[in-house]
Amino acid sequence: RRRVRAILPYTKVPDTDEISFLKGDMFIVHNELEDGWMWVTNLRTDEQGLIVEDLVEEVGR
Rank of each mutant, 00 (worst) to 15 (best):
E34W: 07
S20D: 09
R61P: 15
A6F: 01
M38G: 03
G36T: 02
S20C: 06
R5V: 13
T45E: 00
Y10D: 00
R2W: 06
R2T: 09
D17K: 15
E47A: 07
V29H: 01
T11E: 09
V56N: 01
V56R: 02
N31S: 13
G60Q: 06
W37H: 15
M26F: 12
E47F: 02
S20T: 08
D54L: 06
A6G: 04
V56Q: 02
L8G: 13
S20F: 01
V52N: 14
E34G: 12
E58H: 08
D17G: 10
R5P: 01
D17H: 11
E18Q: 15
L43P: 03
E34I: 07
F27H: 03
A6H: 01
R3L: 10
F21L: 03
W37N: 12
T16Q: 00
S20E: 04
I19C: 05
D15Y: 08
L8C: 11
L33E: 09
L8Q: 11
E58I: 07
T16W: 04
E58K: 08
E53I: 11
P14V: 10
V29L: 05
M26L: 13
L55R: 12
E57D: 07
P9V: 02
Y10W: 05
R5T: 07
F27N: 03
G24C: 03
W37T: 15
I51R: 03
E18H: 05
I51F: 02
V40E: 00
N31V: 08
V29G: 02
I28T: 13
D46C: 14
T16H: 03
D15G: 13
I7V: 10
V29C: 06
G24I: 01
L50H: 05
L55N: 13
T41M: 06
T41F: 01
L50D: 00
V56W: 02
F27V: 01
V52Q: 15
S20A: 04
E58Y: 06
G60E: 14
M38I: 11
V59N: 08
Q48I: 10
M38E: 00
E32K: 14
E32Y: 12
I28C: 11
E32W: 10
E32C: 11
F21T: 01
L22T: 09
N42W: 01
G24E: 06
D35T: 10
M38N: 04
L43R: 05
T41C: 05
K12Y: 02
D35S: 10
D54Q: 14
D17S: 12
D25N: 00
E53C: 10
V56A: 05
L50T: 12
T41V: 06
P14Y: 06
I19K: 01
F21A: 03
L8Y: 10
P9C: 07
I51P: 01
R5D: 02
E53P: 12
R61C: 14
E58G: 09
T11W: 07
E57M: 06
V4D: 01
W39L: 11
E53D: 12
R3S: 09
D15F: 07
L8P: 00
I19G: 01
D17Q: 13
G49D: 02
W39Q: 10
R44H: 04
V40F: 01
P9F: 03
R5E: 09
G49A: 01
D46P: 02
S20Y: 01
D25I: 00
D46I: 10
Q48R: 11
G60C: 10
E57F: 04
L22S: 09
I7S: 07
H30I: 08
D17W: 09
V29Y: 01
V59T: 09
N42F: 03
T16D: 00
E32I: 15
R2M: 11
I19M: 06
I51K: 00
S20R: 03
D46E: 15
H30W: 09
S20W: 05
G49R: 00
V4S: 01
L55Q: 12
N42I: 01
V13H: 14
K12H: 08
D15A: 09
V56P: 03
P14I: 09
S20L: 00
V13L: 11
R2D: 08
M26E: 15
M38K: 05
T45V: 03
V29T: 01
D46A: 15
W37E: 08
F21Y: 10
V56I: 12
R5S: 07
R2Y: 10
V29A: 04
V59C: 12
H30N: 09
V52E: 09
I7C: 07
E18I: 06
R61G: 15
T16Y: 00
L50C: 13
N42G: 03
E34N: 13
M38R: 05
D25C: 02
N31E: 12
W39R: 12
H30L: 10
T11M: 10
T16G: 05
G24Q: 04
D46G: 15
L8V: 12
T11S: 11
E32H: 12
E34C: 09
E47Y: 03
I51H: 02
E57T: 09
M26R: 08
D15M: 07
G49F: 03
V13W: 09
M38V: 06
G24Y: 06
R5W: 04
G49S: 00
R44L: 01
A6W: 00
I7W: 05
F27Q: 02
E47S: 06
F21R: 02
T16E: 01
L55A: 15
P9I: 01
